[in-house]
């Protein structure tokens, strides 16, 4: 069932993109294909192939449906670790703007290790600090990547490190 939903999502996204190609300005003519020609052709071709693939998937689903009678529908992605990992990256994006890269990365590593079943607090603590220090120094200090510094006094402190 999930595969069917995935195919439909692809088809919907393709429709969305195709709709946008209709508004491409084609008044500036340079070549016979034009600005919209290539994207439209690619989208139509992808749509047709995805529809064919959906047909095969649907046929397979119907053929195998009798095997699934009485079975409970399980969505394996609905587990704490899977959703927790995605949530932690989302939280990182938002929180790092406020807390800065270094403290947020410590929290992120700490959280993911705990999420994946690591229960030795000392190990989690050391790993999260060492990882964050190494990443901050390599990318922030050595390679001059402008890592988020946070706000207020955290921003001031960040200048001491990177």
């Amino acid at each position: 069932m999930g595969e069917i939903v995935f195919h439909i999502a692809i088809l919907a996204a393709l429709g969305f993109f195709y709709n946008d190609t209709l508004s491409i300005d084609t008044t500036r003519i340079t070549d016979v294909v034009g600005a919209a020609g290539f994207p439209k052709a690619i989208i139509v071709l992808t749509f047709v192939l995805t529809a064919i693939s959906l047909y095969f998937v649907f046929r397979k689903y119907i053929e195998e449906s009798h095997k699934n009678i009485g079975k409970k529908l399980v969505i394996e992605e609905l587990n704490v670790q899977f959703l927790g990992l995605i949530g932690s990256v989302v939280a990182f994006i938002f929180v790092s703007e406020w807390l800065g890269y270094f403290p947020t990365s410590i929290l992120l590593v700490f959280f993911i290790m705990f999420l994946l079943g690591q229960r030795k607090i000392s190990k989690i603590f050391i790993t999260s600090i060492v990882t964050s220090v190494v990443f901050t120094l390599i990318f922030g200090k050595l390679l001059h990547v402008p890592l988020p510094r946070g706000i207020g006094f955290i921003q001031e402190l960040s200048f001491l490190l990177y």
């Binding site: 990256v89 994006i93 703007e97 290790m113 790993t127 999260s128 990547v145 890592l147």
Partner: peptide, 30 residues
Amino acid sequence: YSVLAPVIVMFSIIGAFAVSNDMGEVWMML
């Protein structure tokens, strides 16, 4: 893996961010 996974996540986040120093790229990566 409980140690390796956060390191890879950090690589992924910073690798995406460093391309144009924009958190939008981290959204894209996710």
